Computed example of a mutant assay.
Amino acid sequence: MPRTHKKITLLDYIKKFIFITIGAVLMGLALEVFLVPNDIVDGGIAGISIMLSKITSLPLGVFLFILNVPFLILGFKQIGKTFAFSTLYGIAVMSVTTAWLHSVPAFTNEKLLAVLFGGLILGIGVGLVIRFGGSLDGIEIVAILLSKKFRIPVGQIIMMINVFIFVAAGFVYGWDSAMYSIFTYYIAFKLIDIVVEGLNESKSVTIISSEYEEVAQAIMDRLGRSTTFIYARGGYKKEEIQIIYCVVTRLELAKLKAIVHEIDDRAFIAIEAVSDVLGGNFQKNNIH
């Protein structure tokens, strides 16, 4: 039988629209009432826009929109129609929000509080938009295009661009503000991860033990997680071995290690972060 694809319902579009709107408004709020009044910049196009607004005295929202739109047009074919329109809508809402809040006084003139709360709200806002299929900064599109041309990882390109932005911020606002800006960006970056991936981050665990059957059974019985055996061959003794592979949440990791070491204190355990878990059934089995 042909495989059917899940159709995106009207409710899905409404949900997407609502959360992208909320995220864009939160970013505009963070910029206008926390960061900009305290001479703190963000990374990416937003950071460039803040500095240009400072130099020219033109509204921040104008630069946010004008600088982002060309990159959206440039990368339209690369990022897809849905993502492009979602991003364009988010950027438009963010620009309007900054214009609307421009005359609102700063919530605080204490730079440390501005860094903490500005970074927190910024991260939540951007994270919501990314989670629901959009973006608020054309720097990601630039990085994708440059990555394909020069074979450099997207993350490294974004980091290099942001280094130049924060150095420029040091010349425009002073080096204290540039350092505050780096901490703001770090806080926002961490919050984006939490919003996009959730607090219940998954971990993949690889276990090599001579007691593999007992260990696998204990993980299923006491932790409620399924396991998979991977047949392998030792590199030193060339003996046939079976590797146990399973995926658990971060909160279950300590218990899993205790279970394994209780059975085999010489077991080899390798743990890696998993950005997302798709397919199969990641729900816990019933534990009696």
Score class of each variant (00 low, 15 high):
D176Y: 11
D176P: 00
F189H: 12
N162G: 01
G174C: 03
K190M: 07
S181W: 12
K190C: 03
F183T: 10
I165W: 01
V195Q: 04
E201M: 15
F166N: 08
F164M: 14
V196Y: 10
I194Q: 10
D176C: 02
G198Q: 10
W175K: 07
V195N: 05
S181D: 12
F171H: 04
T184H: 09
F171D: 00
I161T: 13
I165P: 08
F164W: 06
I187P: 05
I182C: 10
I194V: 15
A169F: 03
Y185T: 12
S181L: 07
V167Q: 01
V195L: 01
A188E: 07
E201Q: 15
F189G: 10
F171S: 05
V167S: 06
T184W: 01
V167R: 02
I192G: 02
F164P: 04
N200T: 12
F166R: 07
I192Y: 00
W175Y: 13
D176E: 15
Y185A: 15
A169E: 01
E201P: 01
Y180P: 04
W175T: 15
Y173W: 05
A188D: 08
E197T: 12
I187W: 07
A188K: 04
G174R: 01
I192P: 00
Y173Q: 00
D176I: 12
G170I: 04
Y186T: 13
F171Y: 14
E201C: 00
Y185S: 14
K190R: 15
Y173A: 03
G170W: 00
G170K: 00
G170D: 00
I165G: 07
N162H: 03
A188V: 07
A178C: 04
F166P: 10
V163A: 12
F171K: 10
V196G: 09
I182K: 05
I165F: 01
F183L: 15
V195E: 03
W175L: 14
S177M: 05
T184A: 09
F171L: 11
A178P: 06
A168V: 11
D193C: 08
I192W: 00
E197D: 14
W175G: 08
L191S: 07
I187K: 06
I194W: 06
V196C: 05
A168D: 00
